[in-house]
Nucleic acid binder design. Structure first.
Lengths: 346, 346
DNA sequence: CTGTTAGCGCGTTCAT
DNA sequence: ATGAACGCGCTAACAG
């Protein structure tokens, strides 16, 4: 039998011996601290690569008698999805602690760049190793991210990326693919073709924009589908409900609705009031109590979900990896979109 | 600002002090080793619960200067899906090693209970902490699992469970839900109704059986759907291809095919030869090179995937948790079924 | 039966 | 600029 005999991993001792220096020097190089001659540093670096040395994060945290501190900065009040993100983070507090990861969560009062910047600017490297933020692409935010990085606080973006910045990693789904998938389903749901309505929060939101783009691209492959102009409900229950009721009244022959925003509660209310849940195919985003109910009673056919639990898990895993000093994460696979019907709900 | 001040976790020292004993005694109780008076053991146990003590697995492995050994026993040759399971495990070898988890993989020559039993019986606790097996429900296998458990080797079931046994955990999807989901999609794909063909490997396989059951239950909700008698292709390319070609020839008005087995290659060949990829809705199982190609060229509409990577990850996480001595894992949520269309392929 | 002690891989004073 | 020595939470070999 081919038994796999794993060779013992290299330790700091091995590196020190190979480089002909002491443990302390190796440690200084590893954590790139000052006080090492360039020549010595090179010797250590060579030993590290030739031995394939990999630091043991757990032992490192054990020695420092210190946990890894992660702070999530998540908007509140605006979006139901943000609540589920925060909940997912909360749920992990306990289990993360066992792995020496301390999770702190700050809900920002508004979807306000100022509040985010203020919270970010306060974070110091001795109390926060990594800030995981969901932020909008505004100059003040970008500046704050740069500043945090310079101070020694890693920044990671969640849900919505800040491409030009010094964020070390991005966790989120591919929203264009989400829109494409929705269209691909809708096209198959309506083999006879038909009018399809699009309900968004706002076209100014990056993710909504991407979803719309993806949906339109694939919908074009189904000549029978006639896309109506997108409605903007600003993710407000009342407004979305009114909009959808008006929509249903105007188009008695509507074939489907793609709700690419977060106003699912309002949409559902409208659908139920007008009792048009049979002949109409409805695709919405984000699993929530509301959308679960919609799936259960048949008013929603499919829910595309961003998988907040998976995103939080991926974020924590990334923090651990990046804490070792890796420049960037190469395995930057985006989070997978989850697809739910009534029949595969947890 | 509500700063979360986490109290320091309790350590073995704290437990020893609280129980009025020494570290060694605490350790003996924790690893339930012999040589401790019941009275003393109780005092320690009380201290553990009252302090909410949780062992640090990493520190434990560090002290033992020993990695956690996990062995996967996976059938070979029969099923393409098993290959992807083994691949998923292989891909994790390196990253797991950093977390002190040594992965070993044994491919069993046949889907043969005897081979599984032989491999399992050899495993000793000093070389294998946990065996993760995908096995059939046969008396010899069950006996072997009991024996392994008695020896001190944990057993975990993967993909296919052994309900009555002493396996500590099961990792797999809900196949009834998978079948239901397929029917739910098919029903929506065929609003006019139509004939639906079912292609299975064998009705003797637990998972195929469950999928069929789920599919039938939900398909009954769509009165227009007419289910043909299931075909058994025994997951063989040739046989499945012949079966499907015959099927297509006989039913020129076929509306859809649900391939609930693993013979996707044969199915695809038949579809391409008969060039019937337009009006026909096809739902298959397991993402593979073959099914990916089918999605890409439109011959397959939807692939339901068991998520082998996720299953391996869940298995490794479970091993870590169970290694601390927890009796059973309470969070026994099944693995989620992944749903792929052409537009959300990684 | 129970306690003492050394050491796992690493970080961190404090000397040198 | 560099090294020796101690401690983090836990296990194990050896005393008592």
């Amino acid at each position: 039998m081919n038994e796999i005999t794993t060779p013992r991993r290299a330790t700091v001792h091995d590196v020190a011996r190979a480089a002909g220096v002491s443990l302390a020097t190796v440690d200084r190089v590893l954590n790139n601290r000052p006080g090492v001659r360039p020549t010595t540093a090179r010797k250590v670096a060579d030993a590290v690569t030739s031995l394939g040395f990999q630091r043991d994060l757990s032992a490192s945290l054990l020695a420092r008698a210190r946990d890894l501190q992660v702070r999530f900065l998540i908007p509140a009040g605006s979006n139901e999805f943000m609540d589920s993100l925060a909940d997912a983070a909360s749920r992990r507090i306990e289990s993360a602690l066992i792995e020496r990861l301390q999770i702190a969560i700050t809900r920002l009062p508004l979807l306000d760049a100022r509040a985010l910047v203020d919270s970010l600017d306060v974070l110091m490297p001795h109390q926060c190793d990594c800030a995981v933020i969901v932020g909008t692409e505004e100059p003040a935010v970008l500046a704050s991210v740069e500043e945090a990085t310079r101070r020694g606080v890693m920044v990671m973006t969640l849900v919505s990326d800040l491409p030009g910045s010094s964020r070390r990693h991005f966790i989120g789904i591919d929203n264009v693919a989400a829109g494409r998938t929705a269209a691909s389903l809708m096209g198959r749901f309506c083999p006879q073709g038909g009018k399809i309505a699009l309900v968004a929060g706002s076209m100014h939101l990056h993710d909504h924009h991407d979803r719309l783009e993806g949906f339109r691209a694939v919908a074009a492959e189904y000549p029978g589908l006639e896309l109506l102009e997108p409605l903007e409900g600003h993710d407000e229950h009342q407004e979305t409900q009114a909009l959808v009721e008006q929509l249903l009244a105007r188009h008695s022959d509507l074939g489907g609705i793609y709700n690419l925003g977060a106003g699912t509660t309002g949409l559902l209310a409208a659908l139920r009031r007008t009792r048009r849940t049979g002949s109409l195919r409805v695709i919405a985003h984000e699993l929530s109590d509301c959308s679960r109910a919609g799936l259960a009673d048949g008013s929603i056919d499919v829910v595309l979900d961003q998988n907040p639990d998976g995103e939080i898990g991926a974020a924590l895993a990334a923090v651990r990896t990046l804490a070792l000093g890796a420049g960037t994460l190469e395995n930057n696979e985006p989070i997978e979109i989850r697809i739910f019907l009534r029949d595969n709900l947890g």
